Amino acid sequence: MNVEGEEFEIDNMLLIVEEAIHDPNLSDYIYYSEEELSAEQVVEKALSNKSRFKM
């Protein structure tokens, strides 16, 4: 995924999404995925795994 912006802006956006989705692997989907995922695909993947994690 191509991410543009200042590092603090990207970190803040990631924190917002992590708080909303509660998937501890969210940043892995963005930075360490073997396939290139769009933002929509990252969210879909995190939401599909949400049932595995307790909040």
Rank of each mutant, 00 (worst) to 15 (best):
M1Y: 12
M1H: 08
M1K: 12
M1A: 14
N2M: 14
N2K: 15
N2G: 13
N2T: 13
V3E: 13
V3Q: 12
V3R: 11
V3G: 05
V3C: 09
V3F: 12
E4L: 10
E4T: 08
E4K: 11
G5S: 13
G5P: 10
E6G: 06
E6Y: 15
E6S: 13
E6M: 14
E7I: 12
E7M: 13
F8S: 12
F8E: 13
E9N: 08
E9F: 08
E9I: 07
I10C: 10
I10W: 08
D11E: 15
D11G: 07
D11W: 10
D11S: 14
N12E: 15
N12C: 10
N12L: 14
N12G: 13
M13L: 14
M13S: 12
L14C: 06
L15C: 09
L15F: 11
L15D: 15
I16K: 15
I16N: 14
I16D: 13
V17H: 05
E18M: 07
E18D: 08
E19D: 10
A20H: 07
A20E: 13
A20C: 09
A20G: 10
I21C: 04
H22K: 14
H22A: 04
H22R: 09
H22S: 03
H22Q: 10
D23M: 01
D23G: 03
D23S: 06
P24T: 05
N25W: 01
N25H: 10
N25R: 13
N25T: 02
L26G: 00
L26Y: 01
S27I: 06
S27A: 11
S27F: 05
S27Y: 04
S27D: 13
D28L: 10
Y29E: 00
Y29P: 01
I30N: 02
I30P: 00
I30L: 06
I30S: 02
I30K: 01
Y31E: 09
Y31R: 15
Y31S: 06
Y31P: 05
Y32R: 13
S33A: 15
S33H: 09
S33M: 05
S33Q: 03
S33Y: 03
E34G: 15
E34Q: 11
E34T: 10
E34M: 06
E35G: 04
E36D: 07
E36T: 08
E36L: 06
E36C: 06
L37D: 02
L37W: 04
S38C: 08
S38T: 15
S38D: 07
A39V: 11
A39H: 05
A39T: 08
A39L: 11
A39E: 07
A39K: 05
E40Q: 10
E40T: 07
E40K: 05
Q41R: 12
Q41F: 05
Q41C: 06
V42A: 03
V42L: 08
V42Y: 02
V43M: 04
V43P: 00
V43L: 09
E44W: 00
E44D: 07
K45G: 00
A46Y: 02
A46L: 04
A46Q: 03
A46E: 02
S48E: 08
S48Y: 03
N49T: 00
N49R: 02
K50H: 06
K50R: 14
K50Q: 06
S51W: 00
S51L: 02
S51M: 02
S51N: 05
R52G: 03
R52L: 08
F53K: 04
K54E: 09
K54N: 06
K54R: 12
M55Q: 03
M55W: 01
M55I: 01
M55A: 04
M55N: 02
M55P: 01
